[in-house]
Design a protein around this nucleic acid. Structure first.
Length: 621
RNA sequence: GUCCCGGUAGCUCAGUUGGAUAGAGCAGCAGAUUUCUAAUCUGCAGGUCGGUGGUUCGAGCCCACCCCGGGACGCCA
């Protein structure tokens, strides 16, 4: 998963300095013919090989017809002074790897440089605009685990770009228009339900019943036609489903009134939206997700743009009639994209095309990211190709915008089937979050009950707040920390176990640091110049320096798990440092000042990285 | 039938443009604690990277075919 986001060059970063130094060494050793050779700098596979390794020698040796180690030696001998100044003597190892160890002083200087509000991340990107399609709830339906993913993955990607200074448009593509909503609305109106007092549960039930009614009707008639039974049998079936047919007719009538702006129907429709969204916003708040009414760009928003969208394809000669419907065909692909039904009405692809056009042309997005279920892969491939065909990705400056689907996998139960309750229903997201919060609170209260624990003096309300943060972190981190494109098994025990690669583990590392810093402040201990002496200090420092690159990689690959992997790595190296390197006790003043500085930086980087996933970082837990 | 995604330790997963002995966590075993928060750390053990063939100095990664699992396939979204 990647797009054409240009990776900014970071001359201040150590890897970049090594890269350019080796590049010029290669040219002076081999000649201009090797000017395009990538030094292939990577972080060392193993600390015993140094901090970085350069792998250029093997591929270069082949084209030169020389032994790789000889080529490596030649290049090392031609190293410019700027490179020699920042490294310990190079070592050639194995088939021709060049092992690089930075001088401790250089690492310390780089860290000092990183010690600014932006933490080394370039955020001068205000000319860039991205639109992020996220959440995508349906009106009158409860949120379930699928919406959890669409919401938090989208929010994280949005925050990622915000962190990099982009203009970000969150787009909540609500399912708030069309026959399904009309069916629900019609059913509720028939039953004379008071829409001012109705709950989302009521709506959800009405939605399901209305759907079942409609399916019943369609299925029966479809079967009748498919089996070519006589008109008598069809009539019989129609009689059987008379109620359903009446309901459908009522739904169509309601839809017609809704579309024509019937004041009463529109007001009732708005009530359904209000009831649904009230709960969506509440859930978003629980998840720390930034989602407000201004982000709503649902199907209804695009209703007047559907006909122009279809017209555009017709006028561009990209749409053809097929069995009464309008389809867009693609070279080398059997599957067409249906943009208008044979009855002249539009369907979801039409809305997606209109939405894409809006995001590209009205919002001016150079990148549009869709955080939607992986099962819609083919659908988005078709939609994106259609947008490409008609030329809506062309930008005023002659560049092309990019549309990217970030497909996410299913949330599975222990049986590896999509997560269901024991009675076979979908888990509501709310129930899942309540359970996680309860678990988080239980754990936090249990810790606080241990004498001398840092939280033992806290009030029950304070502990509840921390417990909620821990429970939510457990769920969010588990969801975001593996490749989002894949299915994962929802196992609350593992998520809330607080051991290993989990949200609470990261929070704990942060709280530990905050504890040290609080004690240091109380003792008037101050941080100062960084010196790198021990292996643990070096490992921690090198990890901190990787932060800007990790964030840029996460953005360019639209991969939230890259952030999580960085966090876990940093928390790990910090805990090893914590174990081996006393900060406040038994060390001289300059060591204490240096280690306090490392702690401060680590805390800030951890908190910053967690904030991109919108996971709280409590100071005590 | 066509197309898409996946298969890595008992379990859950990493693995960047192809690079050194394929890495973590959990579970298991052995250690470290009068602690700056043990929700931690250190070590051990655990693998035919689904299979076969190919490309390459070098393949978990690239190519071909096959096996297994999941998904999508015009008038739902």
């Amino acid at each position: 998963m990647s797009h054409n986001l240009a990776r900014t060059s970071r001359p201040h970063e150590l890897a970049s300095r090594l890269n350019s130094g080796l590049r010029s060494a290669i040219i002076s050793a081999i000649g201009e013919s090797a000017a395009t050779t990538d030094p292939a700098i990577k972080t060392a596979a193993n600390p015993k090989f140094g901090d970085f390794q350069a792998n250029f020698a093997m591929s270069l040796a082949k084209s030169l017809g020389k032994p790789p180690r000889e080529v490596a030696q030649q290049v090392i001998d031609a190293a410019p002074q700027s490179l020699i100044d920042i490294c310990e003597p190079f070592e050639i190892a194995g088939p021709g790897f060049v092992n690089i160890r930075l001088r401790a002083q250089v690492i310390a200087e780089a860290l000092t440089e990183m010690d600014c509000p932006a933490l080394g991340i370039s955020n001068a990107n205000r000319t860039h605009t991205v639109a992020v399609d996220l959440c995508g709830v349906n009106v009158a339906k409860q949120m379930h685990v699928g919406h959890l993913r669409a919401t938090i993955i989208g929010d994280t990607i949005a925050r990622l770009f915000e962190r990099l200074g982009w203009r970000v448009h969150r787009q909540n593509h609500l399912g708030d228009w069309g026959l399904p909503i009309a069916m629900t609305l019609a059913a509720l109106r028939r039953a004379r339900v008071d829409l001012d007092r109705v709950t989302l549960d009521d709506l959800n039930t009405a939605y399901r019943n209305a759907q079942a009614e409609g399916r019943d009707d369609e299925a029966g008639l479809a079967a009748a036609h498919a089996t070519q039974v006589g008109p008598h049998r069809v009539a019989e079936l129609e009689a059987q489903h008379e109620g359903a047919a009446a309901a459908i007719a009522d739904a169509h009538d309601t839809l017609r009134r809704l579309q024509s702006g019937d004041t009463i129907v529109v007001a009732d429709w708005q009530k359904l939206i209000d009831v649904t969204m009230r709960e969506v916003y509440e859930t978003a708040r629980m998840l720390n997700v930034e989602l407000v009414p201004e982000h709503n760009r649902g199907e209804s928003f695009f209703r007047d743009r559907l006909a122009p969208t279809v017209d555009a394809f017709v006028h561009a000669n990209l749409a053809t009639r097929d069995a009464g419907a309008l389809v867009v065909r693609f070279a080398g692909r059997e599957r067409p994209l249906l943009i208008q039904k044979s009855d002249g009405t539009s369907l979801y692809a039409t809305t997606d095309l209109a939405a894409a056009r809006y995001r590209l042309q009205d919002l001016g997005a150079e990148l549009v990211v869709y955080c939607v279920d992986a099962r819609q892969r083919d659908h988005f491939k078709d939609v994106f190709d259609a947008v490409q065909l008609i030329g809506w990705t062309k930008r005023p400056d002659a560049t092309h915008a990019t549309l990217v689907h970030v497909p996410f996998g299913a949330v599975l139960g222990a049986d590896k089937r999509p997560l269901k309750t024991r009675s076979g229903e979908n888990f509501t997201l709310k129930a899942l979050l309540d359970e996680a919060i309860a678990r988080g609170r239980r754990e936090v209260h249990a810790r606080a009950a241990i004498p001398d624990s840092p939280t033992s003096s806290m009030s029950s309300a304070e502990l509840d707040a921390i417990g909620q943060a821990v429970g939510i972190a457990a769920i969010k981190y588990a969801d975001l920390s593996s490749d989002v494109g894949r299915d994962y098994v929802f196992d609350l025990d593992r998520m809330v176990s607080f051991e290993g690669d989990t949200g609470p583990y990261a929070q704990y590392a942060h709280a530990r640091i905050a504890g040290i810093l609080a004690k240091a402040a109380a003792a008037n201990a101050v941080s100062g110049a960084i010196t790198i002496d021990t292996p643990e200090e070096r490992a921690l420092a090198l990890n901190l320096l990787r932060y800007p690159g990790a964030i840029e990689d996460a953005a360019s690959q639209l991969a939230p798990n890259r952030i999580a992997a960085f966090i876990y790595e940093l928390a790990n190296t910090f805990n090893a440092f914590y174990q081996a390197c006393p900060v406040l006790r038994g060390v001289d003043e300059s060591t204490r000042a240096s280690r306090l500085h490392l702690c401060e930086l680590t805390r800030r980087v951890l908190a910053d990285a967690l904030s991109i996933m919108a996971i709280a970082a409590p100071s005590r837990m």
